[in-house]
Computed example of a mutant assay.
Amino acid sequence: MKNHIHLIKLSVGTETVDDLAAWQEKKRVQTEDGFPHHVTRMWPKREPEILNGGSIFWVIKGVIQCRQKILRLDETSGADGVRRCAIVLDPKIIRVQGSLKRPFQGWRYLAPQDAPADLPEGRDHEEPLPIELNRALAEIGVL
């Protein structure tokens, strides 16, 4: 079994997985070699584990809805000259079984055993359950 860890991050400003995909297709959020990336202030201390098979799980509208494999971490700096981390992602967005997640700042580590499962083939474009129904199912232990 691989020794890896995932990241989890709020996708601020997106309403759907399709919004996230459209945002990532813009040149300004791509690396020079054409991969989407997300720039963050903090450099993950668990870099080797992340690069050993980790993904970033995206929380959209309070629900973990999808993930992308993390390809590498690039050093970048903003106009202010401060060193930042560009999390370089596989462009393929994999939808996962919806799981409620409360808001949080920045990114967090997500253990593989706590990550939601990928949706089976053919179900990857299903709409997620309404948040109220998802919450009610989680409260009774179904999700």
Rank of each mutant, 00 (worst) to 15 (best):
M1H: 15
N3Q: 12
H6Q: 06
H6R: 04
I8L: 05
V12A: 14
T14D: 10
D18P: 08
A21P: 01
W23G: 09
Q24K: 02
V29L: 03
V29M: 03
Q30N: 09
T31R: 07
E32Y: 09
F35M: 05
P36E: 02
H37T: 03
H37V: 03
T40S: 11
K45E: 10
R46W: 07
E47C: 10
P48L: 02
E49L: 15
E49W: 10
I50C: 00
I50H: 02
L51S: 06
G53H: 02
S55A: 11
I56Q: 00
F57E: 01
I60N: 01
V63E: 00
Q65S: 07
C66H: 02
R67D: 02
T76R: 07
G78E: 08
G78Y: 10
A79H: 11
V82N: 09
R83C: 09
I87T: 05
D90S: 07
K92C: 09
Q97Y: 13
L100A: 13
Q105M: 14
Q105I: 13
G106T: 05
A111Q: 15
A111D: 11
P112M: 12
A115P: 00
L119W: 01
L119E: 06
E126C: 07
E127L: 13
P128R: 04
I131L: 13
A136M: 14
E139I: 08
I140W: 04
I140F: 05
G141R: 06
